[in-house]
């Protein structure tokens, strides 16, 4: 095998496998950290919640919903990631 083939067939597949789960975790982390957008007035989930609750004054309900949505989002990402892992890494042992 030449060096491109070595990368294609040996190194990259193993590397991808190794970084897959840390990468997923980092991805989940980014979702959670996006909540910080509230601090600079972004219109992401937290910011939008903030805006809505400030017009209705139902802080608890709105943020409770936001919490549930973040939780569901991270669970969905993790679920999808493990499904993909099962398909992609078929037959390989850790």
């Amino acid at each position: 095998m030449n060096s491109i083939q070595v990368y294609h067939y040996v190194i990259l597949p193993q590397m991808f496998r190794r970084i897959y789960h840390p990468m997923t975790n980092q991805f989940v982390w980014s979702i959670l950290m996006s909540s910080l957008g509230i601090l600079v007035g972004m219109n992401e989930l937290s910011g939008e919640t903030q805006r809505l609750q400030s017009t209705s004054f139902r802080t608890l309900e709105f943020f409770m919903m936001a919490a549930v949505m973040y939780f569901v989002m991270t669970k969905l990402v993790l679920l999808a990631s493990s499904l993909i892992a099962k398909k992609v890494f078929k037959g390989e042992l850790s």
Binding site: V28, L32, M33, S35, L36, I38, L39, S46, T59, L60, F63, M64, A66, A67, Y70, F71, T74, K75
Partner: peptide, 11 residues
């Protein structure tokens, strides 16, 4: 762990 800290604080 899955609910952002900032939301937990506000809640």
């Amino acid at each position: 762990r899955s609910v952002p800290l900032i939301i937990q604080l506000i809640l």
